[in-house]
């Protein structure tokens, strides 16, 4: 039994997402390169899980496999007991940048996945999520007229509009400036608390992980294995200068192998 499996399940809520013995091997210049090795992870319904690890370790690969964009070379991903075989509108991936459709307005982007709905319902849904991500007044604007933070909010709104049970976020705030990033974390937490979706959030930012997640999965460098899973048992809103917060943050830094002093 690895340490990973020992801490997996949070009592109560049922398992939503189950990753078992997941492995991913790429072929590069005729050589097999292992990106993921024996990843085991259970995520409960409504849980916020962050995946951290050194850059290039395979975090994004893991997310792309879980989201169905890549097929694993070994192991399996199941959601509600059903094997994942491809991308699915019930689970939406939010990309780091340039994920919104530049030829559509804010409304058009949010309504992108809603073409099967009757017009009235679609418009109500769009209006609701414009509100949720606070883009009122920008309904007719094109992405080129939006700031980076607004574009990411728009991507989140487009994802939420199709009512997915899981949101996958791949370093969604990685391309934003540090002030916007902090604001966006607050926004995402607010949305998560009102919408109650399961969230799997990849980041290389340790503070981000400790500020937001219920649990933080620490990956090792390539090939990525689960080094540890930390439970962040601080209720929201979190005091980011409390001793317990700092303790968990230090623990995480240590796990990643970073010294206390620069």
């Amino acid at each position: 039994m690895s340490s990973a499996q020992a801490v997996v399940t949070v009592a109560g809520a049922g398992n939503k997402l189950r990753v078992q013995h997941l492995g991913m091997v790429f072929e590069r210049d005729g050589e097999a390169v292992s990106a993921l090795e024996d990843i085991n992870l259970d995520v409960s319904e409504g849980e916020f899980v962050c995946i951290v690890g050194p850059s290039g370790c395979g975090k994004s690969t893991l997310l792309n496999v879980v989201a169905g964009f890549l097929s694993p070379t070994s192991g399996s991903v199941t959601i509600d007991g059903e094997a994942v075989s491809g991308p699915d509108p019930r689970r939406i991936l939010v990309f780091q940048e340039r994920g919104v459709f530049p030829w559509l307005t804010v409304e058009g982007n949010i309504g992108f996945g809603l073409s099967k709905l009757p017009r009235a319902e679609r418009e109500a849904r769009i209006a609701h999520y414009v509100q949720t991500v606070r883009l009122q007044g920008f309904e007719k604007a094109y992405p080129s007229d939006l700031s980076g933070g607004m574009k990411q909010r728009l991507q989140v709104a487009r994802a939420l509009a199709v009512n997915p049970d899981i949101l996958y976020l791949d370093e969604p705030f990685g391309a934003l400036d540090s002030i916007t990033r902090v604001i966006m974390r607050g926004e995402l937490l607010r949305i998560w608390q009102t919408e109650r979706r399961t969230i799997l959030f990849v980041t290389h930012d340790i503070d981000e992980a400790v500020q937001m997640a219920d649990r933080v999965v620490v990956l090792s460098s390539r090939p990525a294995k689960i080094k540890d899973i930390l439970i962040i048992d601080i209720p929201h809103p979190r005091n980011i200068s409390s001793p317990h917060y700092l303790e968990l943050r230090d623990e995480l830094l240590k796990q990643i192998g970073l010294a206390y002093e620069i």
Partner: peptide, 13 residues
């Protein structure tokens, strides 16, 4: 066409 946009489209079924 950026692969991200293709993926986003596929994601919406």
């Amino acid at each position: 066409v950026p692969p991200v946009l293709r993926s986003a489209g596929r994601n919406f079924g």
